[in-house]
C-alpha cells in the first residue's frame, strides 16, 4: 500500500499520565501512517487515548503527561526530537488542530478576528493590518462565515459559527495536517452535517491531510479514507473505511458496529458488550480487550497480540480475528 512516503508516521507511541494513584498508560504502542492528502479517522470511547494522541502530535501535553517512547515523523522529521523553538514554528504551520468544545477554544474578551491575527502574526511575521484582515476575510469565506463577522466577539457567535471560526484559525498558517478533535460533538445534526461537508471540501481544495477524532463511528465513517479503532490506549484495528465496515477483524470493532443504531437499513437488535473499559491505572495483561471479549482464550490473557498487517493494508491486533465472511 505505502508507495509514497507518508506525511505523518507514528511509531510505537507510548504516553503516560502521572496521577496521585500511579501512572495511567493512556497511549501504549500506537503506530499508524497518514498519506499525503488523505484522511484518517480515529474512533473509540472516552479514555481510549484518541485525544491523548492528538495532544502528542501537537506536543501540547498537560503538565502531568509524558511521552515515554516512540517517534512521530512529520515529513521526515521526528518532532519528539525538536527543541522548544523549532517546535513553535512547527506547530500550526505543519500541524494545526481544531479543538474539541469550540466554546473554550476562543478567548471571550477578544474579537474573533483579533485572535486569528494573533495566530497569523506568530507565523507569518510582518503582515500589515490590512494584509492580515484580507487573509482573515479569505479564511472566513473558506469556512462559510461572513467576513464582516470578524470584528464580533465569540459570544455573539452560535455554536456552529464558533466551530467554523476555530477551523479558520487552524487554517490560518496553511498547515499540511489538520487534526480535528471531536469537531462537531456539541453541535446539532444539521450544523454538524454542514461543517463536515465543508471540512471535506476544504481538504480537497487545499490538498491537506486530516486526522478526525470522534467517539461517533458514523461521523468517522463519513469523512475518513482510513479508520483506526482504538481501545484502552491501543490501536485495535486500522484499515480502509469500506474494508473495515465490510470485514471487521477485531471483535471490538465488530461489537462497536453492532452497537450503533442507524436510521437507514434494517432495524436490528443492538449488541451489548459485557463489562466496562479497563482502568488504565491497572490495565489487564495481554490483550487489553480480553476481559470483555467473547473470543478470548488463555493466550489473550497472557500475551499482547501483535499489530499485524493481513497483507492488504488491514492491520489488526488480535489473536483470534473474526473471519472475513462472518456475516
Amino acid at each position: 500500500m505505502a508507495e509514497a512516503t507518508p506525511i505523518l508516521s507514528v511509531q510505537d507511541l507510548v504516553m503516560h499520565y502521572t496521577t496521585r494513584k500511579g501512572d495511567v498508560s493512556a497511549v501504549d504502542g500506537v503506530s499508524f501512517d497518514l498519506e499525503n492528502g488523505k484522511s484518517l479517522g480515529l474512533v473509540g470511547e472516552s479514555g481510549c487515548g484518541k485525544t491523548s494522541i492528538a495532544f502528542s502530535l501537537m506536543k501540547l501535553l498537560p503538565d502531568n503527561a509524558k511521552i515515554k517512547g516512540g517517534s512521530i515523523y512529520v515529513g521526515g522529521t521526528d518532532i519528539l526530537q525538536l527543541s522548544h523553538d523549532e517546535l513553535l514554528k512547527f506547530r500550526w504551520q505543519r500541524i494545526a488542530m481544531v479543538f474539541q468544545a469550540a466554546m473554550n477554544a476562543l478567548n471571550p474578551v477578544y474579537t474573533v478576528g483579533d485572535q486569528i491575527i494573533e495566530a497569523l502574526d506568530l507565523h507569518w511575521g510582518d503582515l500589515s493590518r490590512e494584509q492580515s484582515r484580507e487573509r482573515i476575510g479569505q479564511l472566513f469565506e473558506m469556512v462559510g462565515l461572513d467576513p464582516k463577522l470578524m470584528d464580533r466577539y465569540p459570544h455573539e457567535f452560535s455554536g456552529g459559527m464558533r466551530q467554523r471560526a476555530v477551523i479558520a484559525m487552524a487554517l490560518s498558517c496553511n498547515p499540511d495536517i489538520i487534526i480535528a478533535d471531536e469537531p462537531t460533538t456539541a453541535l446539532d445534526v444539521i450544523v454538524q452535517d454542514r461543517i463536515l461537508r465543508e471540512l471535506k471540501k476544504i481538504q480537497e481544495k487545499l490538498g491537506m491531510s486530516m486526522i478526525y477524532i470522534s467517539h461517533d463511528i458514523a461521523v468517522i465513517a463519513e469523512v475518513s479514507d482510513r479508520i483506526g479503532v482504538m481501545y484502552a490506549g491501543r490501536m485495535a484495528e486500522l484499515a480502509d473505511g469500506v474494508d473495515i465496515f465490510e470485514h471487521p477483524l477485531h471483535p471490538y470493532t465488530y461489537a462497536l458496529m453492532r452497537a450503533f443504531p442507524s436510521i437507514k437499513g434494517e432495524k436490528h437488535e443492538l449488541v451489548t458488550l459485557p463489562g466496562e473499559p479497563p482502568d488504565l491505572l491497572f490495565p489487564p495483561p495481554g490483550c487489553r480487550f480480553h476481559p470483555r471479549c467473547p473470543r478470548a482464550t488463555d493466550v489473550c490473557k497472557q500475551e499482547q497480540p501483535p499489530f499485524a498487517d493481513n497483507g492488504r493494508g488491514h492491520f489488526v491486533a488480535c489473536w483470534h480475528p473474526m473471519e472475513a465472511n462472518h456475516e
Binding site: 445534526v189 444539521i190 454538524q192 452535517d193 465513517a221 458496529m257 437507514k264
Partner: peptide, 16 residues
C-alpha cells in the same frame, strides 16, 4: 433533519 444524520456505514451514501 433526517438527511443530515450521518450513517455508520461508508457504503451507504446519502443525499443531504
Amino acid at each position: 433533519l433526517i438527511s443530515a444524520v450521518p450513517v455508520p456505514d461508508p457504503r451507504i451514501s446519502r443525499q443531504a
